Simulated assay, not measured.
Amino acid sequence: MTDFVLAVASNSEELLDANLRRSPMTAHVPLHVEWNAPSAAVAYNRALDATTAPVVIFAHHDVYFPRGWEDLLARRIADLPADWAVVSPFGVGLDGAHFGPVWSSSLGQIVGRVAMAPVPVQSFDEMVIILRRDSGLRFDGTLAGWHFYGTDIVTQARAAGRGAYATSLPCIHNDRFHEALGPDYVACYRAMQRKWAGQLPLRSPITKISRSGLHLRRDLWRARRSAGFRAGMTVDTGTPVEELARRCGWLDLRGSL
């Protein structure tokens, strides 16, 4: 499988070994790791510069791709409109609907409507972003931290007249529970407000980026208030990822439509 390369930013061999490296596709799809980068954008641009495959699969180190996922991806790419630049297993549609499906351990459930066909989106969850190299897109190196770069790359694509889509590519996000959104999240929100002032509002999977910022304040408050309830929803990230895939019915995607 020479058309794909898998790229990840990581700071933990343990998490990488327990999740992404257990994906069967890593036996034949090259895996490029960027260690301890200062931001997602820096890590992913370094990966772009260090690799040559036409399609780059950027994934979090706590993601697991079930057996046959890369073959399903090849079929999904064949179904994409010719203008596609980026695609993801999870995205926010232009109407604000969430499309998947993907498993989230922090939420303890499968999330996202099943995308029956490629769906144009306004943002991605950053767990997996698939980029077409000849689109010429790169991540914004001035965007510090680890938030909103999925919204940014989609907005870049749309501003350039290229397509950004969600499509059905079931996978496991074995993510840990986070009690609240921190100052780094707020800083990235403010950066997106400034950069895309002419395109606002934009909906990310977590909040709406608006000119006033009232949605951020509301969602920070809601996150604090709901922390106990959300903690009760989580599934232990120590559960083997293959078992999570089996419970979802995604242990082997070969033959999936």
Rank of each mutant, 00 (worst) to 15 (best):
A27S: 15
M25W: 08
Q109Y: 00
A245H: 06
S212T: 15
E243W: 00
A85T: 05
L257V: 13
A40C: 12
A166V: 01
C248M: 11
N36R: 14
D49T: 10
A223R: 15
S12I: 05
I110N: 02
A78Q: 13
H173S: 11
P30A: 13
L80N: 04
W250S: 02
G93R: 09
H61K: 04
R75M: 07
L169P: 01
A37W: 02
G182S: 08
V87I: 15
A180Q: 11
R67S: 10
T142Y: 00
E242G: 00
P54F: 06
G93T: 07
V102D: 02
F139L: 14
R230E: 10
M25G: 10
P54N: 09
H215V: 08
L202E: 07
A78F: 01
P183Q: 03
D49C: 09
T207L: 13
K195S: 12
S123T: 07
V42P: 00
P66W: 06
G228Y: 02
Q193F: 11
S23H: 12
A144F: 01
G68C: 05
R176L: 12
A97D: 14
D79Q: 15
W84E: 04
G198I: 04
G228T: 14
L107I: 00
T239L: 09
A117K: 14
P66G: 01
A9Y: 00
S210F: 06
Q193D: 08
A50N: 11
G96W: 10
L137H: 05
R75D: 15
A7V: 14
D83R: 12
P101V: 11
G182P: 04
S88H: 06
I110P: 01
R203S: 14
V235C: 07
L72V: 13
G150V: 08
E179G: 11
I209R: 05
L220Y: 03
N36A: 12
V111S: 12
R217L: 14
A159P: 02
L257C: 06
F177G: 02
